[in-house]
Simulated scan of single mutants.
Amino acid sequence: MRAFIALLAGTIFGAGLALSGMVDPARVRGFLDLFGTWDATLAFVMAGALLPMAIAWRLQPRLPRAASGDHFALPSTRRIDVPLAVGALLFGVGWGIAGLCPGPAIANLALAPLAVLPFLAAMFAGMLLHRLWAAQR
């Protein structure tokens, strides 16, 4: 059941990314180009995500567990520290350069697998480096 829920959620997420055009790196870079030909599409996608997330945050405390049967994995802290800030900076720089983040990159495996492979290789290398760095701490 857990695998089915993950597959269903991933399929809906990927379809939403494809439908909204967020798998197109040029569209994302257009959103980040504030002083050029700005493309507001991503702003509308983000705004459209606010209502469902607001509802989810209100419902979650009333639910005994997640749909998969697991407990909810919520952050234990709201503190902004150096690792969080550095991670956000690296994410933003990578997003701006490539026009992709992990969700759209994985969705692009179905649409343009060869074009997205360098990004995915870099993403997995970064995950490995983080794991090695965290193990050293």
Rank of each mutant, 00 (worst) to 15 (best):
P52K: 04
C101P: 05
S20R: 02
A56K: 08
V82I: 15
P61D: 08
G87A: 07
Q60T: 15
V86Y: 05
A105K: 01
L90P: 09
A135K: 05
G99P: 02
R62E: 12
H71L: 11
F4T: 14
W57A: 14
I12E: 10
G126N: 08
A73Y: 10
I106Q: 00
A40Q: 08
R62F: 08
L17W: 10
F4W: 14
P102G: 08
L34D: 10
M53D: 05
L84C: 11
S68E: 10
A122V: 14
D39F: 01
F119P: 00
A110E: 01
L89T: 15
L132E: 02
L114F: 06
T11P: 08
G69C: 05
R2K: 13
V28S: 02
M53K: 05
R65L: 07
G92R: 08
M1Q: 11
V93N: 06
P75V: 12
F35K: 10
R62Y: 08
A18V: 15
A115H: 01
L74S: 11
A134M: 05
A49F: 06
L34T: 13
A54G: 13
I97S: 04
L89M: 15
L114W: 10
A85Q: 08
A121I: 15
V93H: 06
D24S: 04
A43P: 03
G126E: 08
A121S: 09
S20H: 02
V116G: 00
P83C: 07
L59D: 11
W133R: 06
L109S: 00
Q136K: 12
F44I: 08
A73M: 12
S76I: 11
L8C: 13
C101N: 09
S76R: 11
L84A: 12
I55H: 04
W38I: 13
L117F: 00
D33A: 11
G126Q: 09
R137N: 06
P75S: 11
L114H: 03
A134T: 09
T41H: 04
G36T: 04
G103L: 06
V86K: 02
R131D: 09
T77L: 09
P61H: 13
T41D: 03
